[in-house]
């Protein structure tokens, strides 16, 4: 009997080993999040501008390609750390808010988009026309672009941009 016990234990282990392996794989798979849930876990917190619903896109630097396919390297090189986007219904427009590491990076991207001229508008500097308002507030750069299929209302667009500027100051001030 003194010999039988170790042999039985070894036999039991040999038989149970595959089961243990399968259990380990299943448990590991259950604990590891799927791509979708991982993306969700990495995404920054929702609702960064309290006046709007959760954005359609809220992307950290490494996922900028999901919105700006091809322009992400340029934005990252300028220090872009996060991009938020909303499709607005009234006015019908797209709003993109980009956060940078410093105001200089945000200013360079504004200059690339709008050229050197500036107009009256919200933020520290702005470039507005009938269809769009681009502006920078500190290290936050915002692009509000009206849907061309909707009736143009530059005043309404400018008013919305000023509202966005206030929300940036109130809600993203800690990041500026």
């Amino acid at each position: 009997m003194a010999k039988a016990r170790p042999r039985s234990v070894v036999s039991a282990l040999v038989v149970a080993l595959p089961l243990l392996v399968v259990v380990a794989v299943v448990v590991r798979g259950a604990l590891r999040p799927s791509d979708g849930s991982r993306a969700q876990a990495e995404a920054p917190v929702a609702g960064p501008l309290a006046g709007y619903a959760a954005p359609q896109a809220d992307l950290p630097a490494e996922r900028l390609h999901e919105r700006v396919d091809g322009a992400e390297e340029y934005l990252r090189s300028q220090g872009c750390s996060r991009l938020l986007a909303w499709d607005l219904a009234d006015p019908a427009a797209t709003l993109e808010v980009l956060l940078f590491e410093d105001p200089e990076g945000a200013a360079r991207v504004l200059s690339r988009d709008a050229g050197p001229s500036r107009t009256a508008g919200p933020g520290d500097e702005a470039s507005a026309d009938a269809q769009s308002v681009l502006f920078r507030r500190g290290k936050v750069y915002a692009r509000l672009v009206a849907d061309p299929d909707s009736p143009a209302d530059p005043e309404r667009l400018l008013a919305e941009a000023r509202k966005v500027d206030r929300m940036i100051l109130d809600d993203l001030g800690r990041e500026m």
């Binding site: 039985s8 038989v15 149970a16 392996v21 399968v22």
Partner: peptide
Amino acid sequence: LKRILAAGAVLGGAGLAAGVAV
């Protein structure tokens, strides 16, 4: 011990089958 071994064999076989299926 024999019953434990038998149960282990059944569970181990089931585990192997599940592993192959996965």
